[in-house]
């Protein structure tokens, strides 16, 4: 059975990801052990809460190095929610903090159009796929543009170019980056493990990669 490693660095609920990958007939492991990470077929970087806190926890046990190494081997890697934001160069949440720098761009507070908007954005929003070759062959390949997924965030990714963007979403009239893909690196701003059947399809696509 394929081994899916979910990085456990003391942040949030990891049970749901673990349970989802169990149902998908893989062997999930929640760990921060470098050897176990190396031995796995897939790597997931989950994350909720504050950017700086998460980066600090990650670096403290050198998981940043483990992530770079895993990606260099060409194996599939996925960042979820804050885990996607951490793929970018830096975040502006409570001062500037460096991210993993794997994708060009930064992380900013969700902008508002005219009026004051409620934050965090908590709830179900539609996936709007970028109609590109990358998107059509991505882990969102069989997901319809009208499908809903669950978001919970106050900050969002601002990629430098659109070339890695495979889907956007709209919250209160503002377009937000929902998903990026660059070679073997995938980022999802929403929570696939909290998005019912649609989320399962996406996770299924990921482990088929």
């Amino acid at each position: 059975m394929k081994k899916v490693c979910v990085l456990d660095y003391g942040i949030g609920n990891l049970k749901s990801l673990y349970n989802a990958f169990k149902i998908l007939d893989t062997t999930p492991v929640l760990t921060s052990d470098h050897k176990k990470i190396k031995d796995s077929d897939f790597l997931i970087l989950p994350g909720v809460g504050a950017f700086a806190n998460a980066m600090e926890k990650l670096k403290k046990i050198h998981l940043d190095e483990a992530i770079y190494h895993f990606i260099d081997q060409g194996k599939p890697f996925m960042g979820i929610c804050l885990g996607m934001q951490m793929l970018f160069e830096y975040s502006e949440e409570f001062g500037v903090t460096d991210g993993l720098g794997l994708i060009k761009g930064n992380v900013i507070k969700i902008p508002s159009k005219n009026k004051k908007i409620r934050l965090p954005n908590i709830g179900w929003n539609k996936i709007i796929k970028s109609n590109t070759e990358l998107s059509n062959n991505s882990i969102l390949r069989n997901i319809r543009s009208e499908d809903y997924v669950y978001f919970i965030h106050s900050y969002c990714c601002k990629p430098q170019t659109n070339e890695n963007v495979i889907a956007n979403t709209v919250y209160e009239g503002v377009k937000l980056c929902a998903s990026v893909q660059k070679n073997n690196i995938v980022g999802l701003q929403f929570h696939p493990e909290k998005s019912g059947k649609v989320g399962f399809e996406i996770l299924k696509n990921f482990i088929k990669n």
Binding site: S16, K22, Y150
Partner: peptide, 11 residues
């Protein structure tokens, strides 16, 4: 909750 999270994949 522990049992629920094995079967239920919404928040």
């Amino acid at each position: 909750i522990e049992n629920a999270s094995k079967h239920i994949f919404v928040p």
